[in-house]
Design a binder for these strands. Structure first.
Lengths: 167, 167
DNA sequence: TTAAACTTTCAAAAATAATTGAAACTTATT
DNA sequence: AATAAGTTTCAATTATTTTTGAAAGTTTAA
């Protein structure tokens, strides 16, 4: 396989994966492209390489910047903007999990708390509902904390020790 | 908040969350409904409660069973089929992570290996591509293994120790 | 201040994904 | 073997999400 083919395959795969994870295809593709590029890329080049419109490129780049995983760069003497992706994978994982926690897990926890604290009458049905949603609340809270700790301690001794233990 | 309202809120929330994670809304809603129900539910009841068609209910129940998180049950004397969800959350997490690994991570690793092992010429561009995709391969492999180990040891002493360490 | 270079926005169009419903299929009962 | 009870399938429809492209907005430079 030659470079161009490999690069294309990577971008396509990352894009398809994105869809399965609720991220739109183009956004994932742009990210893929920036990840494997050794230098900043202009919007023009992204449009060209992925064959997408200016509007599409603009909106998805904005989206990636909102996630904190793509940055704008300015090149001396150049008028236009260039973009780079966070290339440190540990850092990328931290940012993604922080953001997902903020956007999805925290709001879900709020709802779970609400619905699990209703006054159940003594029917088995209502008791089970309260019981199950409470368990879910605890579980999600635990998972969220764990993920947070794991990313936080990612590359320190504690994390490394854990990796060894789990081998 | 009264029971019916809470239940509805939970089902809606779980459904919305599903979409963000690449699971279709109805599938997530059916799962939610079964999770908080203390007894098996028939397809009729699911259709009624979620106001969906027979075909939709059938296909999404099938999907949930393929994930291994919903089971068919037969009630003595009853002709029709009833459904229950896996209610043990640790078990649910294990099944979901196993399945996602099989469906998404493993195929991705295969591609990453392919594209990261091309013969790079000595341009910085190609070198960076190989380097970055190799790192990505290692990272994804490590994460996949970790998740596997974590769910496997979920409720044994090692897991519990880890939880304590991370507090 | 004007014009050029570039970016953002957003309503309309296109693409994709989910849903319906009725026919085909299965299984159990008489 | 015929019928009834129930389930699955899938082409057509409907709903949702993404993309386009051109107008409006910004910034820089002469």
């Amino acid at each position: 396989m030659e470079f161009k083919e490999a690069k294309n395959k990577f971008v396509q795969t990352w894009g398809a994966l994105g869809s399965q994870w609720g991220i739109n295809k183009t956004m994932a593709q742009i990210h893929a492209l920036l990840m494997v590029s050794n230098e900043p890329i202009s919007m023009e080049d992204i449009m060209e390489e992925l064959q997408i419109s200016r509007g599409n490129a603009s909106m998805n780049l904005r989206g990636l910047m909102d996630w904190g995983i793509v940055y704008k760069e300015f090149k001396a003497g150049e008028r236009k903007e260039f973009f780079t992706a966070e290339k440190d994978l540990d850092e990328l994982a931290v940012k993604i999990s922080r953001e997902r926690s903020k956007r999805e897990i925290k709001p879900t926890l709020k709802i779970l708390k609400e619905v699990s604290t209703i006054e159940a009458n003594n029917s088995a049905e209502e008791k089970h509902f309260v019981d199950q949603t409470s368990k879910l609340y605890d579980f999600v809270l635990k998972a969220d904390n764990m993920l947070d700790k794991m990313t936080e301690f990612n590359d320190n001794w504690l994390g490394k020790l854990f990796m060894k233990m789990m081998k």
